[in-house]
């Protein structure tokens, strides 16, 4: 039953990713011209003479004389085989440029999710069980600030105070020495040293949102009759809370995994620029500006893939956790 469900969900991923790739391809190709024309225009604007024959040659070389549909097909076919294409701007395969940064992006995202949960969970529970107490009001206030302040502003504030108080620069994710070096223990340590600042900044908004959502969810569940039943059995309040209402509000938590990934990744782009993190963000934005088709496209596809995987994981976890989804999934329509 569960296996069939998982299989079904994985099969559904294929059309989802296909549609996403078509969308990404279309959007990137929407503006007039392509990378080479942009390049020629830039060169002409700077007063240089563009070598039109070279540009024609490059266009042919990369298949830009072919109809878009065919180019799309070759792109997707390459992606399936793990070939992310070639970046015109950097004149190197996309994989080489992106590799390290993708890993760092994943580390930052993952750490942020963990941070969000660790902070949001206890605060949410406290707020719900102590509704309208001073603690609830205080935490709510702080949470709302976290929700309202834009990430990049928070990043600037952090950098400013870190510099004034500690005299250190907190930019970057890894010591410049280790950039483009293979992964090593020293490099990992350097990453971990730098990690906490961006994680707090990027996680602030999500944490606040999650506290609010968890509090609201739990407050709803605390009103439910089955919680009264649990207490009527003689369960101590803490145990009753953990076994019943908390378990129910976990549903929301888990189904949020799928949502949290894209929002963290997209929220992180701007912060990454401010803090000059060596994640994918700044690279992506630059690639989109210059219509570096394969770099931007493959990149976005990778992020979509991560998101779809996140949704898949949360769906499977939900099915395991909640028998109603597992056993009633396809019932009465």
């Amino acid at each position: 039953m569960l296996l069939r469900y998982i299989l079904k969900r994985i099969l559904i991923m294929i059309p989802t990713l296909l549609v996403t790739s078509a969308l990404i391809f279309t959007v990137i190709n929407l503006p007039e011209g392509d990378y080479f024309e942009t390049m020629a225009a830039e060169m002409q604007a700077q007063g240089e003479k563009a070598d039109m024959s070279r540009i024609e040659f490059l266009k042919k070389e990369y298949g830009f004389d072919k109809p878009p549909l065919e180019r799309y097909f070759w792109w997707v076919a390459g992606l399936v085989q793990g070939d992310m294409g070639y970046s015109f701007e950097y004149q190197r395969p996309v994989r080489d440029i992106v590799g390290d940064r993708l890993l760092l992006t994943m580390i930052v995202s993952f750490a942020t999710i963990i941070f969000t949960w660790i902070v949001a969970f206890p605060i949410g529970i406290y707020s719900a069980t102590h509704q309208y107490s001073w603690g609830d009001y205080g935490l709510t206030f702080i949470g709302l600030i976290g929700l309202a302040v834009p990430h990049f502003l928070l990043a600037l504030v952090f950098m400013y105070f870190a510099n004034i108080w500690f005299g250190i620069s907190i930019g970057g994710l890894v010591d410049p020495r280790y950039l483009n070096q293979p992964m090593s223990w020293a490099k990992l340590r350097s990453v971990l040293e730098h990690l906490w600042i961006p994680v707090i900044i990027i996680g602030a908004g999500g944490t606040a949102g999650m506290i609010r959502a968890l509090r609201a969810n739990l407050l709803d569940e605390l009103q439910k009759q089955y919680y009264v039943t649990a207490r009527a059995k003689g369960l101590p309040p803490g145990k009753a809370l953990r076994k019943y209402p908390l378990r129910m509000s976990l549903n929301f938590f888990i189904s949020d995994i799928g949502d949290i990934l894209p929002s963290i990744v997209s929220g992180a782009e701007v912060v990454a620029i401010v803090l000059s993190l060596q994640t994918t963000g700044p690279l992506l934005i630059r690639a989109l500006q210059s219509q570096d088709m394969y770099l931007a496209g493959s990149f976005l596809m990778f992020l979509s893939f991560l998101t779809v995987i996140g949704v898949l994981i949360s769906d499977i976890a939900l099915a395991i956790l909640d028998p109603r989804i597992r056993l009633q999934g396809a019932a009465t329509k």
Partner: peptide, 22 residues
């Protein structure tokens, strides 16, 4: 708590909602 459930049992109106669905 020792009385509740142990010496005094209780049932409620809504059998739908008074048991945990999960």
């Amino acid at each position: 708590r020792a009385l509740r459930g142990g010496r005094i049992g209780m049932i409620f109106q809504e059998p739908m909602s008074s048991l945990s669905p999960v």
